[in-house]
Write a protein that binds this DNA or RNA. Structure first.
Length: 194
DNA sequence: AACTCGGGGCA
DNA sequence: TGCCCAGAGTT
């Protein structure tokens, strides 16, 4: 993901929810040429911004969230992106996962963003005994050395998308099935509640 | 904790 | 064309 400053990253990550990186990159490329600061976004109408980010999914909600967030950034934070979890999560359109991504990529903090792929894979493989994303986040943070968290984050997401899928995981071809408490032998598949 | 939102992607 | 998805917000 390409970004030149924490603000651009924040907007890109908000846009990337329920949407592919390709769409986000295509959208932000032109977007950040026209609008560069939180103030530039804060004065847009919802319709104006919605037109700009169409293609990124849920664009009406996102345009409202982004405008509100940019107003807060310019009014309360001097146009800067806060570098702590509490303030980031308080921004409209920013949940824990988005906040952790920004903290990690923009500010170099050792967070472990938990999306649904990471959550599912961690629980199936027994990497965490937690029942909540918060607990999984903590367990993975404890389990994985700081220097390796970035690569493991990508590995888990890729694994979750390609093999350890939500509904029909391909356990038959899984390279870690022998270590997985949830893996089903032969032709059986996982039940969906796992 | 469960439910809603709602548009892109893919079967 | 209809089902699935993923993250944030809501209740």
């Amino acid at each position: 993901m390409h970004f030149r400053n924490p603000f651009e990253l924040l907007i890109a990550v908000i846009l990337s929810a329920q949407c592919t990186d390709k769409q986000v990159n295509k959208t932000t490329a032109g977007l950040f040429e026209k609008y560069k600061t939180p103030q530039d976004f804060a004065v847009l109408s919802q319709q104006q911004l919605a037109d700009e980010i169409k293609g990124c999914g849920l664009y009406r909600n996102k345009s409202l969230h982004i405008i509100k967030t940019c107003k807060i950034l310019s009014e309360r934070y001097g146009g800067r992106v806060p570098d702590n979890l509490v303030d980031l999560e308080a921004l409209p359109g920013v949940g824990r996962k988005t906040a952790n991504v920004v903290l990690n990529l923009a500010f170099g903090k050792p967070t472990f963003p938990v999306d649904t792929h990471v959550y599912r894979v961690a629980r199936r493989l027994g990497l965490s005994f937690g029942n909540t994303p918060r607990r999984v986040e903590r367990d993975l943070t404890d389990l994985i050395p700081e220097a390796e968290r970035g690569i493991w984050h990508h590995r888990l997401i890729h694994f979750g998308r390609s093999c350890c899928t939500a509904r029909n995981p391909i356990c038959i071809d899984c390279v870690v099935a022998q270590y997985c408490p949830k893996a089903k032998k032969q032709t059986q598949t996982l039940s969906k509640e796992n």
